[in-house]
Every structure is written in C-alpha cells, then in structure tokens.
C-alpha cells in the first residue's frame, strides 16, 4: 500500500514538475506547480508530517500559488516567445544538470541503504501539538524573527506596489 501510494504521488509530482518546466504559458506552469505541491503534501502525510502537509496545502498551494495566478491574470501574461539562449546554457546546461542529478542520486544511494525504509505510521511526532511545542520552545527566536521578516515583506510589497502610482 505504501509503495503504491508513494509511486502514484511521486509520478504525479515528477510529471507535474516536468510540466512546470516545459510549458510555455506561465498559467499552465502555475497549475502544474500546484499539482507538485499537492502530491508533495500527500507524501508528507505518508512521512507522518500531518501538520506540515496541511500547512503545505494552505500556505503554498492555497496562498502563494493563488498570488502567482493572481499576478499572471493581472498582467495577462502571454505565452513565452522563443528566443535564442546563451551559448553556455545551450552547450553545457543539460549535461551539467544531468551530472548534478547523477551526483545527488549517487550520494543518496551511498548514504542511505535500501534497508532503511519508510512506512506509514512509523513516525507520529509530526502532529500540530508537537510542531507547536517545538516552535514555541526550542525555536522561539527564529519564529519571532520570521514574524518580523513577514512584517518587512508586507511593508516592502506595499512600498513597491505604491511606487508605480506616481
């Protein structure tokens, strides 16, 4: 059951991620990205991270991506026009990327043997209660700092958005 669920959502995630990259229209990319985020949320649930799964859907898929789609609608962004890429990217981009992926997979394979497995219910410390407790004890300072970060981001967004008026 675990394997089937993992494979289904991993395939959805990878196909959607490929779609994000190959689609020329930004809104198709955005919808595919929502697909990636949704399937990652399911994988988080399989890993026992229920709070993070909910936060993933609410914050990422529900708020950040709505913002993206909103901006795409607002600018009425059209499909990307074909353009000559820089020589370096054309020549070295794909091989280097495959090398990076190969390196990552190699290290993962070396560091994590097949015997280390994940099964649903193997870790139950990801409840809202556990995350909240850690957030307000061990990670209190970073938490407060992020709140200031968000405040600055709000101010920055407002300043940037106002500037175009004059």
């Amino acid at each position: 059951m675990d394997v089937i669920l993992f494979l289904i959502f991993a395939i959805i995630a990878v196909v959607s991620a490929i779609n994000v990259v190959v689609q020329t229209h930004p809104i198709s990319s955005a919808v595919s990205l929502i697909g990636v985020m949704g399937s990652l949320a399911v994988l988080y649930l399989l890993l026992g991270a229920e709070f993070i799964a909910a936060a993933q859907v609410i914050v990422y898929a529900g708020a950040v991506m709505v913002l993206f789609i909103f901006v795409i609608l607002l600018l009425n962004a059209g499909a990307e026009t074909k353009r000559g890429r820089s020589f370096m990217v054309q020549l070295l981009g794909v091989p280097l990327l495959i090398a990076l992926l190969g390196l990552l997979v190699f290290f993962v394979d070396r560091l994590f043997p097949r015997s280390v497995t994940v099964h649903f219910g193997g870790f139950s410390g990801g409840s809202a209660q556990a995350v909240g407790r850690a957030l307000f004890t061990t990670y209190l300072l970073p938490f407060e700092v992020t709140s200031i970060l968000i405040l600055i981001a709000i101010l920055g967004a407002i300043v940037l958005a106002r500037k175009e008026l004059d």
Binding site: A61, I72, L73
Partner: peptide, 24 residues
C-alpha cells in the same frame, strides 16, 4: 482527522482555483 480544521481550511483555500482558472 486530528487536523480536521486545517484540512477544511486547506480544501476551502484550494477552491479559489476553480473560480480563478474558470475566469482566465
């Protein structure tokens, strides 16, 4: 679910896409 309330918030926040995408 022990995150039932969050689940409902998540489902309702995803509902926007139906409308936004239909409009576009």
């Amino acid at each position: 679910l022990n995150i039932g309330v969050l689940y409902i918030l998540a489902a309702s926040s995803m509902g926007v896409y139906g409308i936004a995408l239909a409009g576009w």
